[in-house]
């Protein structure tokens, strides 16, 4: 088999790949930040001990964790315009879907993180006069976040890989970029190989970063 990468040049990268690359990064970042924020709220609901908060949060998390992501992407893209009449592009739809979906996973991580903070810390927060929100914001969540940082970033690496699923609704992401190149130049093998290499480099460097961070941020006990 002869591999020919001669079709790759700066023009190809800037006109086909760059757009998809930046969209994938954007999708990952938005879904990560949004997912962690919503996920933390869901985790707090599930740990509140109040049935009317626990039940909906548990339902949300368990449902989304039991459905394949690609189906959620499709449903959201097809159903939301039907139900609400709001039309949105595949890119925007995917960003919302990923945030909603990843929140379920991040919430489980944050729940474990919150539970990893000893109860005595909560007592200590209350004892100096903090309210529940203050105690969470100033005492529990910073520690939960630090304890869980490696797992949160690992989930983000998975999230980055999963962004390629937006292919299903035709959003223009990194993989779509390589796919377009493959078709335009009739070089699918080379193009998909390059795609794999880019995903690998991104994910591998991220996991290296996780290791470094883990060493630096650990709380001394």
């Amino acid at each position: 088999m002869n591999l020919d990468f001669s079709f790759v040049n700066w023009g190809v990268v800037s006109s086909f790949i760059a757009k998809g690359f930046f969209y994938s990064i954007q999708l990952t970042l938005v879904a990560m930040v949004g997912g962690i924020v919503v996920g933390t709220l869901l985790a707090l609901m599930r740990l509140s001990g109040k049935k009317w908060l626990v039940m909906p949060a548990a339902f949300y998390v368990n449902t989304l964790r039991s459905i394949p992501l690609v189906m959620v992407i499709l449903w959201f893209f097809l159903l939301i315009p039907l139900l609400t009449g709001i039309r949105m592009g595949a890119e925007a739809s995917a960003i919302i879907t990923f945030t909603v979906f990843e929140a379920a996973y991040y919430s489980e991580i944050m729940r474990a993180g919150i539970q990893s903070v000893p109860k005595g810390q909560v007592y200590a927060g209350y004892a100096v006069g903090m309210t529940y929100p203050q105690c969470m914001q100033l005492v529990v969540l910073p520690q939960a976040f630090r304890n869980m940082l490696p797992v949160l970033l690992t989930q983000t690496i998975i999230l980055f890989q999963d962004t390629s699923l937006v292919y299903a609704i035709g959003a223009y992401d990194l993989f779509h970029g390589f796919d377009t190149v493959a078709k335009n130049f009739g070089r699918p093998v080379e193009s998909y190989l390059l795609a794999a290499a880019v995903y690998f480099v991104m994910c591998f460097s991220l996991s290296m970063l996780v290791r470094q961070l883990q060493k630096r941020i650990q709380i001394i006990r």
Partner: peptide
């Protein structure tokens, strides 16, 4: 009320972060 009552715990419970 709690802010006016000092409390010291068995396991210190300083904020480690």
């Amino acid at each position: 009320l709690r802010s006016r009552v000092g409390m010291v715990f068995q396991h210190f419970e300083l904020f480690p972060h």
